[in-house]
Computed example of a mutant assay.
Amino acid sequence: MPVAALATVAAAVAVVAGIATPVATSTAAAPAGVTIVAGDAETTLSAVRVDGANVKFQGLTVRIPAAGEGVQAAAESTSGDLSITVSRSADGTVVVRTDKHEYAAASSSQAAPESHVAQAAAASTARANAAKTCTDSAYALSGWKLSSFKWYYNPAGAPAAVRAGAPASISAATTSLTRACGKKSIKLAPSYGGATAAAVQVGAAGNCTGNDGRNVIGWRAGSGRWLGMTCTYFKSINGRKTVTGTDTALNTQYKFFTSAKSCSGAYDLQSVVLHERGHSLGLNHVSQASHASAVMTPALAPCSVGKRSLGLGDYRGLAATYGVR
Score class of each variant (00 low, 15 high):
residue 67 A to V: 03
residue 28 A to Q: 12
residue 23 V to T: 00
residue 45 L to I: 00
residue 38 A to G: 14
residue 56 K to L: 00
residue 21 T to P: 02
residue 81 D to E: 06
residue 49 R to L: 09
residue 4 A to W: 05
residue 76 E to T: 10
residue 8 T to F: 09
residue 24 A to N: 14
residue 20 A to Q: 04
residue 52 G to W: 08
residue 7 A to F: 02
residue 15 V to L: 02
residue 28 A to W: 11
residue 59 G to K: 14
residue 45 L to S: 04
residue 79 S to I: 13
residue 29 A to R: 15
residue 25 T to D: 14
residue 46 S to C: 04
residue 78 T to R: 14
residue 6 L to W: 10
residue 21 T to G: 14
residue 40 D to G: 02
residue 65 P to T: 07
residue 48 V to W: 12
residue 17 A to F: 01
residue 60 L to Y: 11
residue 45 L to A: 06
residue 59 G to R: 14
residue 27 T to A: 07
residue 80 G to D: 13
residue 66 A to W: 03
residue 25 T to P: 10
residue 73 A to V: 03
residue 11 A to D: 09
residue 32 A to Q: 15
residue 21 T to Q: 12
residue 50 V to P: 04
residue 76 E to K: 06
residue 15 V to A: 02
residue 61 T to H: 11
residue 49 R to G: 13
residue 58 Q to P: 07
residue 66 A to E: 02
residue 34 V to A: 08
residue 61 T to N: 11
residue 13 V to L: 08
residue 32 A to M: 03
residue 51 D to H: 12
residue 27 T to F: 02
residue 44 T to L: 07
residue 66 A to L: 12
residue 46 S to L: 02
residue 20 A to G: 03
residue 48 V to Q: 10
residue 15 V to H: 04
residue 20 A to L: 05
residue 75 A to K: 01
residue 69 E to R: 00
residue 38 A to M: 05
residue 75 A to T: 04
residue 69 E to H: 00
residue 45 L to Y: 05
residue 10 A to S: 10
residue 76 E to I: 15
residue 63 R to I: 07
residue 72 Q to K: 00
residue 40 D to E: 10
residue 63 R to G: 08
residue 38 A to N: 09
residue 64 I to W: 03
residue 54 N to D: 03
residue 47 A to F: 07
residue 40 D to Q: 07
residue 20 A to S: 12
residue 39 G to C: 13
residue 54 N to V: 14
residue 45 L to E: 11
residue 30 A to M: 10
residue 48 V to M: 13
residue 50 V to Q: 01
residue 25 T to K: 11
residue 66 A to Q: 11
residue 29 A to Y: 13
residue 79 S to M: 08
residue 73 A to I: 01
residue 72 Q to T: 01
residue 65 P to N: 15
residue 54 N to L: 15
residue 20 A to H: 09
residue 45 L to M: 07
residue 19 I to K: 04
residue 41 A to P: 01
residue 67 A to M: 04
residue 22 P to F: 01
residue 53 A to Q: 14
residue 50 V to A: 01
residue 37 V to E: 15
residue 22 P to E: 04
residue 39 G to R: 00
residue 19 I to T: 11
residue 9 V to S: 04
residue 37 V to H: 10
residue 69 E to C: 00
residue 74 A to I: 01
residue 44 T to Q: 12
residue 10 A to Q: 08
residue 61 T to G: 08
residue 6 L to H: 05
residue 20 A to V: 05
residue 7 A to M: 10
residue 20 A to E: 06
residue 74 A to V: 01
residue 71 V to C: 02
residue 11 A to G: 05
residue 49 R to I: 02
residue 28 A to F: 13
residue 50 V to W: 12
residue 32 A to H: 04
residue 3 V to K: 11
residue 11 A to C: 02
residue 14 A to I: 11
residue 58 Q to C: 11
residue 41 A to L: 11
residue 36 I to T: 04
residue 75 A to V: 07
residue 37 V to T: 03
residue 10 A to C: 06
residue 50 V to C: 00
residue 49 R to A: 08
residue 35 T to W: 11
residue 52 G to Y: 06
residue 79 S to G: 06
residue 44 T to K: 09
residue 30 A to I: 05
residue 8 T to C: 04
residue 9 V to F: 03
residue 11 A to T: 12
residue 30 A to L: 11
residue 23 V to G: 02
residue 67 A to R: 14
residue 34 V to I: 03
residue 30 A to W: 07
residue 28 A to L: 07
residue 42 E to F: 03
residue 26 S to L: 01
residue 11 A to W: 04
residue 10 A to T: 03
residue 4 A to H: 10
residue 59 G to V: 04
residue 10 A to Y: 09
